[in-house]
């Protein structure tokens, strides 16, 4: 328990900053929608005239931008990028920082097993990403709700946030696993964010070229896209299952490697 409290305190500042960040993103993003006024249809036409590739890169394909929720779907892409960057960095850092700050000699000479240390840290990290998710959820419901004229948005936003939470956990454990596996703690953060960037770019490349559809299983950014969540029946059970498998495997990896790791200073 003491480790969880310690971690919550240590991460409080960063949590507040990220929360303000997503809040600002939702506010400013939806502010743009409100600013368009009734010109939503024109916006749709404008978008439609853009080359497909540009649409793919901006992630605008398939959204009805004249609707608040459609516009929010566009914004969702940027929200998940923010939330996953937070998660992956938090995951890598929460494990690696004891080695980086050389506090392993403090923590791991205490009568506590490494398994417990990891468990407490994972709980603290989960609480952190949960708060970011909750802030996004609440601010989205309020801000999108205000722009929506009679549209029902809450259900869809909740679904989107469940998807985002899955992605957050996936990237959180990508971070912890890398920090546990890599001998050099300094590189853990860089490698983790590198993986995030690569999977994100891969998702865009898949959007550009339909022939690469098969690769969508490799990049989590293709698992819960706003387009399919909003336009069809919600979260895809295949990808939910796949997410679960990834999270279980990477959590196991984190424990397994950290247990055996030589902690260097």
């Amino acid at each position: 328990m003491n480790i969880i409290t310690r971690e919550m305190k240590a991460n409080l500042k960063s949590l507040i900053i990220w929360s303000i960040g997503v809040l600002f993103m939702v506010g400013a993003g939806m502010g743009k929608y409100a600013g368009m006024g009734g010109s939503g249809e024109t916006m749709n036409e404008l978008m439609a005239e853009m080359p497909d590739s540009l649409q793919a890169i901006m992630g605008t394909a398939g959204f009805d931008l004249s609707k608040a929720l459609g516009f929010y779907g566009l914004l969702y892409l940027y929200l998940i990028v923010m939330a996953t960057i937070h998660a992956v960095m938090l995951g890598a850092n929460i494990i690696a920082k004891e080695e980086l700050d050389k506090t392993v000699e403090f923590l791991l000479v205490k009568p506590i097993s490494r398994v417990k240390v990891i468990s407490f840290k994972l709980v603290a990290a989960l609480l952190n990403v949960f708060v970011v998710n909750l802030v996004t959820l609440v601010s989205s419901i309020i801000i999108v709700g205000r722009s929506a004229e009679g549209e029902k948005v809450v259900g869809d936003i909740v679904l989107l946030m469940v998807g985002m939470f899955c992605l957050q956990i996936i990237f959180l454990v990508i971070g912890t696993a890398i920090a546990a596996v890599y001998k050099n703690a300094k590189k853990a953060g860089a490698i983790s964010t590198g993986i995030l960037l690569i999977t994100f770019l891969l998702a865009i490349i898949i959007n550009l070229d339909q022939r690469l559809e098969a690769l969508r299983y490799i990049t989590p950014f293709k698992y819960f896209e706003a387009e399919s969540i909003l336009n069809t029946s919600g979260l895809d059970p295949v990808f939910l299952g796949l997410s679960l498998i990834i999270v279980v495997v990477l959590t196991f990896t984190t424990y397994h490697y950290y247990k055996k790791k030589d902690l260097h200073l």
């Binding site: 240590a10 700050d101 050389k102 506090t103 000699e105 403090f106 000479v109």
Partner: peptide, 11 residues
């Protein structure tokens, strides 16, 4: 066990 490392680092 009580341990005092050669260099002390804290949070």
């Amino acid at each position: 066990i009580g341990y005092l490392p050669s260099e002390v680092f804290y949070y």
